[in-house]
C-alpha cells in the first residue's frame, strides 16, 4: 500500500536547519498494523504527516496504492486523503462547538454523502465504538477515553483504507487506553491498515511490526507475528 524511498524532509528556521527525515525508505503492506517508535524528534510525527498527506516531502518518492503522490498539490492530496485516510490524535482534536454526532459526521459532509445516508453511517459507527448514548453531547462533557472513541469513530466513518494514529493513548489512563487499542485492533482485523506512532511498548505490542527510528532514519524493524 505504501512504498517510501529516499524520503527527505528538512525544517528550516532562520538559524537552524533540522533534518526530520533523512533518506527514509520503508514499505507498508495492505492490512498491516505497524507501530513506529523512537525518541522525541526522531521524525516519527513528520513521517505520519507525510503519510497522511498533511505535509509534503522535500525529496524522495512516496507511492500510495501505486500512485506517486510526493508532488501532489494541496487539492489532489485533500482528495486522496478524504477518501482513503483516517486520523487519530493524542489530543483527540474534536471541534468543541460540534456535538459527538456532528463531529463524526464531518468527513462525510466533505465527501458529499447524502443526509439520510450520513445519519445511518454515523449511527452505525457510534454504535461500534459504544458511544451512541452520548451522541448529542459536546466533547467537553465526555471523559478522555470517550473523546478518543469519538475520534476513532470519526476516523473510520468514511471506511478509510489507512488509519494513522499519533500516540492515540497518550492522554488516556491505562484502562481507557486499552479500550482504544482494542478498537484499533478490531479495525485492523476487519482489513484496515494502521500506522501508529507511539512511545508505549505496551501499545506497540498490539501491532504486527515495530519500526524504530532515530535521526530521521529507520534503525531496526521487529516483526511480532
Amino acid at each position: 500500500m505504501i512504498n517510501i524511498s529516499q524520503l527527505e524532509k528538512v525544517y528550516r528556521t532562520e538559524e537552524v536547519e533540522t533534518v526530520a527525515l533523512n533518506k527514509l525508505t520503508m514499505d507498508i503492506k495492505t492490512g498491516e498494523f505497524v507501530a513506529v517508535m523512537g525518541p522525541s524528534g526522531c521524525g516519527k510525527s513528520t513521517l505520519l504527516n507525510i503519510l497522511g498527506m498533511l505535509d509534503d516531502p522535500d525529496d524522495g518518492s512516496f507511492i500510495f496504492n501505486g500512485i506517486e503522490v510526493a508532488h501532489f498539490n494541496e487539492r489532489k492530496r485533500a482528495d486522496l486523503r478524504k477518501n482513503n485516510i483516517g486520523f487519530v490524535f493524542q489530543s483527540f482534536n474534536l471541534i468543541d462547538e460540534l456535538t459527538v454526532f456532528e463531529n463524526v459526521e464531518l468527513p462525510l459532509i466533505y465527501t458529499g454523502v447524502k443526509t439520510a445516508d450520513r445519519k445511518k453511517r454515523v449511527e452505525e459507527v457510534l454504535d461500534k465504538v459504544q458511544i451512541m448514548h452520548r451522541r448529542n453531547h459536546y466533547p467537553q462533557q465526555l471523559s478522555g477515553g470517550q473523546q478518543q472513541r469519538v475520534a476513532v469513530a470519526r476516523a473510520v466513518v468514511n471506511h478509510p483504507k489507512l488509519i494513522l494514529a499519533d500516540e492515540p493513548t497518550g492522554n488516556l489512563d491505562s484502562s481507557n487506553g486499552n479500550e482504544v487499542m482494542q478498537l484499533l485492533t478490531e479495525l485492523n482485523e476487519q482489513g484496515t491498515t494502521i500506522v501508529m506512532v507511539t512511545h508505549s511498548e505496551h501499545d506497540a505490542r498490539y501491532s504486527h511490526r515495530i519500526i524504530r527510528m532515530l535521526d530521521g532514519q529507520t534503525v531496526t524493524e521487529n516483526i511480532l507475528i
Binding site: 497522511g52 498533511l54 494541496e74 487539492r75 485533500a78 482528495d79 486523503r81 478524504k82 477518501n83 486520523f87 482534536n93 474534536l94 471541534i95 462547538e97 464531518l106 468527513p107 466533505y110 465527501t111 470519526r154 468514511n158
Partner: peptide, 16 residues
C-alpha cells in the same frame, strides 16, 4: 485554528 486543522484533515478543501 484547531477547527480549521480538523476540517482539513477530514477532507475539507481550502475553498470550502
Amino acid at each position: 485554528a484547531k477547527e480549521v486543522g480538523i476540517r482539513k484533515m477530514a477532507g475539507a478543501l481550502r475553498f470550502q
